[in-house]
Every structure is written in C-alpha cells, then in structure tokens.
Design a binder for these strands. Structure first.
Lengths: 164, 164
DNA sequence: AATGGAAATTTTAAGCTTGAAATTGTTTTG
DNA sequence: CAAAACAATTTCAAGCTTAAAATTTCCATT
C-alpha cells in the first residue's frame, strides 16, 4: 500500500480554495456595496441604481438612448425605464425625443441633476478612497492584474458582446 | 516658478486609482454573480438567493432560526421570510416549531431539499473552479491577502457586530 | 398576577431586477 | 406599396430587497 487515500486530491483542494476565494471576494464587494447603499440612502436620500444611471448620463452630456443606457449599465431595458422615470419625477433627468427616430428617446441629466451628481460623485470617490486606504499603489496594480485572470463567462455564454 | 500646477496631485491620483480598482472589482464580481444566476436559472430553475438559503441550511442540518438565517446571510428578516416561504411551497424546506419558545421557528431542508442542494452545490463549485481556472495557488493566496486590506465600513457603522 | 419592555417573526410599502409580451415605429423586400 | 421582419421602448408578472410597522410571545419587575 504505497498510496493511502488522501482526504482531498490536489484538483479538489484548489477547487475548494477557489470557492473560498470567491466567497471572500463576494463578501468584500458586497460589503463595500452595502456601505455605499447605506450612505447614499442615509446621507443623500438616493440609491445606488440611481447613482449609476446618473453617473452614466454625466459622462454623456448629450444624453444616451434608453437602450444605450441599459447596455452600458448591463441591466435590462425595463429596469432603466423605471429608474429614469423616478429620476424624471424628481427633476434630475429628462427624456428628449430623437430627431430621426420617433421610437427612440434620449435620457439626459437636468442642470439640477448635474449639480446633484457632482456632489454625490465627490463623496462617493472619497468613500472608496477611505475604504481602500489599506491598499498602496503596488497593491492596486497587483489586484487589478489578478482580477484580469478571472473569466466569468464561457464563450458560449458571451453572446452579447458590447464592443466599446 | 519651481512648482508648475500638476494635473493631479499624488493623493488625487491614488484616489482615482482606488476608484478604478473598485469599479473593476465590482465588474468582476458582478459578472461572476450574473453567470451564476443565469446558470441557476437556465439549468436548475432556481435563483441565487434560494441557493444561498439552502446552502446555509445545508450546513446546519438541525435547522436555523429565521433570525439566525438572516444574520448569517446578512439580509433582512423580512427577506428570508419570503424566500423560505417559496422554498417551503416547493417542498424543499420546512418550518419547525422551537420547543421552548413559541415565537421562534427553525427552518430546515427537507430530504428533497438536501438532495437538490447536493446537486446544485456540486455544479456551483465546478462553475467557480472553471471561472477562476486562471488563478494558481499563489494567486489565490495573494488575492486573499489583498482583500484583507479593504475595510468596507468605518467603526461608526460597524454597530451590528455578528460574532461567530 | 399584572404590566411593561424586549425579542422573533411577519407584514407592508416602495424600489430594484429580470425575461417575456405588448406597443409603436422603421426598414426591407416581394 | 403592402407585408413582413426588425428595432426601441414600455408594460407586466414574479421575485428580491430593505426599513419600518404590526403581531405575537417571552420575561423581568413589581
């Protein structure tokens, strides 16, 4: 008997290690996200989805078609419809007809929306900077490189390529 | 003039770098999560929240009180109520009265629930292993260590300590 | 034993999310 | 040009999520 049955084979061991890493990654990003949601809610009476939409519109001052917005944010069409609805009710966004195509509409920030987003974005960046203060420049590059080695989808599932 | 105005001061530069890292981290974990949700839905007709609840119950064969379950999963009480409701409707979980306390109930997996979870967990681990195949043992340890340097909440917000 | 506070859970209201169906408008093509 | 295919958006049904309110039960103090 030269080989007693090991508890875990090497392949199994690294599979478990990868699973643990995923759980840790999920916990970390979930905690950051939860902190952002809480602060946006408690201090600015808004939500992360609204912030995300405003951020996308802020980067595109001429507006984005609803479909472009949902592609950019990687959420469904129906989803952005509701968020833009509520942003519009609050006077932070508006819909503009697209000249050549009566089906389409462009969502834009209002001046009030731009002003509001400027405040939010500034705080948001400070929050992230604070939470990640423990990472130096080298750590940042190292983690970024490691993240590049993760391949979330197999080729068969990567049908919706969104070329930039 | 010995100091011409630089585009970004060092502190601003690393703040931006941390923000970019956060966006990348968010994108990666979001993509993994989206892939998991899609596969659970398409191949097993279930959802990630259901999987998470089943996973917690699977680790606790004697059941967990609803409040323990929500603490463990870090979601609200009302949230687990609904998920356990639906799991129960499907015969995968059940509620058991707690002897000493008529307020409390323990949620447990049924035998069908255990069998179903065993199948799901096996696939789930394989999916993660596949997506993270690009990371070797050293990479895993490195990333894990880097994640430990992120502090998602300030002390003032860490009021709900959940000691394990 | 009564009362009042704390605890466990559910309910509720509002918003987020999705995929699918429905609408409306555009373009291709027979 | 009519019809069919296609495109942009909204609507819909179902489920997830939260915080806050409501219920029910427990427990400590009188």
């Amino acid at each position: 008997m030269s080989s007693a049955k090991p508890e875990t084979l090497p392949a199994e061991a690294s599979s478990k290690a990868r699973l643990r890493l995923w759980l840790k990654l999920l916990k970390t990003s979930g905690s950051i996200e939860a902190a952002l949601r809480r602060r946006l809610r408690d201090r600015h009476n808004t939500t992360l989805p609204r912030f995300d939409v405003m951020s996308a519109l802020s980067r595109n001052p001429d507006g984005l078609k609803m479909s472009q917005l949902s592609q950019f944010l990687r959420v469904s069409n129906g989803n952005v419809t509701g968020i833009v609805d509520r942003l519009t009710e609050d006077g932070l966004a508006l819909r503009v007809a697209v000249p050549g195509d009566r089906r389409a509409q462009v969502a834009r920030l209002t001046p009030a929306g731009e002003a509001e987003f400027a405040r939010l974005a500034s705080e948001h960046e400070a929050w992230i900077n604070e939470m990640m203060a423990g990472l130096g420049a080298d750590d940042i590059h190292e983690m970024s490189a490691l993240l590049d080695h993760i391949q979330p989808a197999t080729s068969s599932e990567t049908s919706k390529d969104t070329p930039t």
